[in-house]
Computed example of a mutant assay.
Amino acid sequence: MKSRLIKNARIIALNEEFIGCLHMEDGLIRSVDRGDTAVAGAEDWAGDWLMPGMVELHTDNLEKHLSPRPGVLWNAHSAMTVHDAQCAAAGITTVLDSVVIGDLDEGGARSQTQHTSIAALHQCRDEGLMRVDHFLHLRCEVSAPDILEVFHQYADDSLLRLVSVMDHTPGQRQWRDLASYRRYTERNGRYNEAEFDAMIAQRKADQQAYALPHRQVIVKASRERHIPLASHDDTLLSDVQLAVLEGVSMAEFPTTVAAAQAAREVGMAIIMGGPNMVKGGSHSNNVSAAELAQLDLLDIFSSDYVPSSLLMATFMLGALDNWTLPKAARTVTINPARAIGLNDRGEIAPGVRADLLRVRMNRAGMPTVMETWLAGQRAY
């Protein structure tokens, strides 16, 4: 593999940033040095930032390509390759594609695409069609009646790196605010009062019947397989306490300061959404990522439904009091990588896989990905 030497780059290391040089060869970072170099042929990055490729644990971006409009299902292989290209352009070099299993909308797009999307993930990887590194994240809707059948089908999938347990029953967790829930559910069609009330009653009945026993089975099976676990939308102290008893290691999108503080006290990694940071708050009226960041209750950013939000959120976070750009960069690089046991990426250091980004600030003050490198190969 061709050896490359980069100079005059603003390198974002784990705890500092400096102007320096980086040498990569055979897919690995060979050396990182401060200052200039006189070696002929070095690529001059003219002061652009050089940072690790970003690691994404939870993105729903694939869903937008699988179902681009209500009632429209798209070819899964086409959806996967376009989603992959967007990740590369956004600077994401490792992505866990989130697939929801257990669809609360009977016959909805998620239930119709869960199998085809996982099959496309495998086939596109096997054929070498991917620009970046893809794995699988199973998002398990524990109150759905059919969840266990699908979960057991994929519990031993070779690409599975994360399982999250979630309960989107209205009236609790993410959807405590029923007005927000109604606006969200009516994005594809309206309910009259009787229909909305009947739907709420059915969701609550399903939760009573299925949520806890399904969660117990999924948690047990995941722990037996040593698959990292995340708990979704923790709100109350009791939510966090349940997750601790289950051995969950990540609090994914806690909805209150109290839940985030409880997660911090027991050593759980706290994940928040990049769109929440960029937009200045939660679309469902829950706690803002900026508020948790200012309380130092944020460890990992997820792009959630907008891949480009990761880089934007990182630079916004780095500008907050008590934060620095290197500390902010850790929320999208080494912290998520280590949370799922990936120890070969996520930092600028000798011996680490050469997953790298070239980032430039444009005149509008927006960080822009100029180049993305995966294991020393140009991906974007």
Rank of each mutant, 00 (worst) to 15 (best):
D33G: 10
K327G: 04
K2M: 05
G171H: 07
N15Y: 03
L374N: 13
G280D: 05
M366Q: 10
L28S: 09
R360Q: 14
D48E: 11
I340K: 09
Y210V: 09
G365H: 08
M24Q: 08
V82E: 12
D197T: 09
D60Y: 00
A375H: 13
G351H: 12
Q174A: 08
R182V: 07
E347Q: 15
A42K: 10
R34L: 04
I218K: 02
S231R: 11
I300M: 08
Q207F: 13
S111D: 12
D239N: 09
H122P: 05
D233S: 08
P145R: 07
F135I: 12
L129K: 10
M199E: 13
M250L: 12
S222I: 14
A9I: 13
H214R: 03
T255N: 01
E371H: 07
G27E: 00
Q123F: 04
D103A: 10
L242F: 08
P228I: 06
M277W: 03
A89E: 07
E141V: 12
G273W: 00
D355A: 06
R338E: 07
R30H: 00
A79N: 08
R4H: 08
M80C: 02
Q114A: 11
L104N: 12
Q208E: 15
N276T: 08
Q208N: 07
T81E: 10
S309C: 10
M366D: 06
M250I: 15
L22T: 01
A349L: 09
V32C: 14
R353M: 10
L160A: 05
S282Q: 01
R125K: 13
I19H: 13
T256H: 02
R161N: 03
P307S: 04
P350S: 03
T255E: 03
R358P: 04
W74Y: 15
A263K: 02
E25P: 14
G341F: 14
A329T: 09
T37D: 00
D48F: 12
E186I: 14
Q174D: 06
G47L: 05
P170W: 03
T372D: 13
L212V: 15
N75P: 13
M316F: 13
P275A: 02
M277G: 00
N75T: 11
A90C: 02
P52C: 11
L311K: 05
S143Y: 04
Y191D: 01
G280F: 03
L342S: 11
G27C: 01
D126N: 13
A198M: 08
S284Y: 04
D156H: 07
C140Y: 08
D299T: 07
D44M: 01
Y184K: 06
P350A: 11
R183F: 05
R110N: 15
F151R: 08
I334A: 09
E195L: 12
C21Q: 14
